[in-house]
Design a protein around this nucleic acid. Structure first.
Lengths: 247, 247
DNA sequence: ATCGCTATGTTGGCTGGCGAACATAAACGC
DNA sequence: GCGTTTATGTTCGCCAGCCAACATAGCGAT
């Protein structure tokens, strides 16, 4: 029973899936967990790529993105330290039509396809957690579909900020309006307008790629219900610590 | 080795997941497969309901729908005889935020939660197929999210007709414009306009809840890329017969 | 200090889908 | 056959987000 300092700068257990594993399972996997850094903007995989690693982020945020022929695109889900990136490895399809991109720099541990498939086949806790996370991801994606259809830019931007914030350990994001536009599938100008409104109302401040949320409760009021719906589903399905105590 | 007529009116193997099982697995499950009818409009489950059965449609179509507080809603995926309804049973969450509604009447076989969980835990072919189908479903939902964001009513209606058609065994659909509006998350009038255009162009004819596709190739031209992308992913992931030979 | 690049601000016209209100017409019950 | 119900047709003003074009301003590099 190895004793592991939970707050060491680089600890696999900063990822909440890994942290929720029984000690025995965790120790069996530990030798295969490879530490990597995820730089801002890194395209971890492109649509259709054969995926070779399952990533468990400890910090930072990864966007799952669908691209269209005409160059447009939309983010369909966000993943942080509550989850994993590369589910096609254990779902069996080996690749997905989505690409993955690091939206906020950070770190991750990764497991090779082979080891993950072995572990998954054991039918233990990692299988269980992986499937629960996948179900949560489906909820997020589905809600995004409805949200895209029905809600305004202001609401969607607010929701996106909140979801990103939940996956950061600070109240600020390093991201340009241009990038947000790409992720939300709207023009940069639309983001400028919506962000300007949020700033004028005193919910956020921003400048050249740095957004600070200064009144989170009011931002939550401003966001559409989609934020809470997805959050509740994540809280229900995933290991306890997620989104708890991050304020 | 029971011999089963593949074309008998009520055969579990009309569902392509069940049909793809090794004979041994299939026969083990057969005693537990309960035949049911799915009447038009049946709400199989509401958002958050504890799901007790995994359904394998043999004919008919089921819509997965997300509802919003203000009464609006959008369909996030369509399921026919290529798949199953009630994935939260084996994904582990027991319920989902989506509701499920029969969009085209038909039949299904269902498996109780208990039996399905047992079978899934064996790690056999049903587990494999269930996960592959789930991955395909994720693709469909994700593509829907992007499509909702970027494509026009005409395109989306065309895509929806094609996807429904693929899950029927005819070239006609029984569905009102009102219902299509609910599923696509738009007003009935918008559907009327788009459908009128498709009819004027000679792709479809319709009258009081009966839509016939009379020029499918041209309808495919009219639809957005989303149709083909999802279809290709289904073909790649799922057992062979899907969408093959349905014309 | 200046140049240049990147991020943000702003404007004007356009359009697709919304909201509401109302018109017609096909099927159904009796 | 007649009235009721249900499905579809049509119109008008409205607005969010699009497209295009251009303006300013912060920040780094030399």
């Amino acid at each position: 029973m190895l004793k592991i300092a939970k707050e060491s700068p680089h600890d696999p257990k900063q990822n909440l899936i890994l942290a929720a594993l029984p000690e025995q399972d965790y120790e069996r996997l530990l030798p295969y967990l490879e530490f990597i850094t995820m730089p801002l903007g890194w395209r971890m995989s492109e649509s259709g790529d054969h995926v070779n690693f399952l990533h468990f982020p400890t910090t930072g945020i990864v966007s799952l993105i669908y691209d269209l022929e005409n160059g447009a695109s939309s983010e369909v889900a966000l993943v942080g330290n509550e989850g994993m990136v590369g589910i096609s490895i254990f779902m069996g399809g080996d690749s997905m039509p989505s690409s993955t991109e690091v939206q906020s720099a950070g770190y991750a541990y990764r497991l090779s396809r082979k080891i993950m498939k072995q572990e998954f086949a054991l039918g233990g806790q990692l299988q269980h957690l992986a499937l629960l996370f996948t179900q949560a991801l489906i909820s997020q994606t589905s809600q995004t579909a409805v949200c895209n259809q029905h809600h305004s830019m202001d609401q969607r931007l607010s929701r996106w900020l909140l979801m990103s914030l939940d996956r950061m350990h600070e109240n600020k994001l390093m991201v340009t309006q241009e990038l947000i536009g790409n992720l939300l599938g709207v023009r940069r100008e639309s983001v400028t307008e919506a962000a300007g409104k949020l700033q004028k109302d005193g919910f956020i401040t921003y400048s050249r790629g740095l957004i600070k949320v200064i009144d989170r409760p009011k931002l939550e009021m401003q966001a559409c219900e989609c934020y809470q719906v997805v959050k509740q589903e994540y809280d229900r399905l995933l290991p306890h610590p997620f989104l708890k105590g991050l304020k």
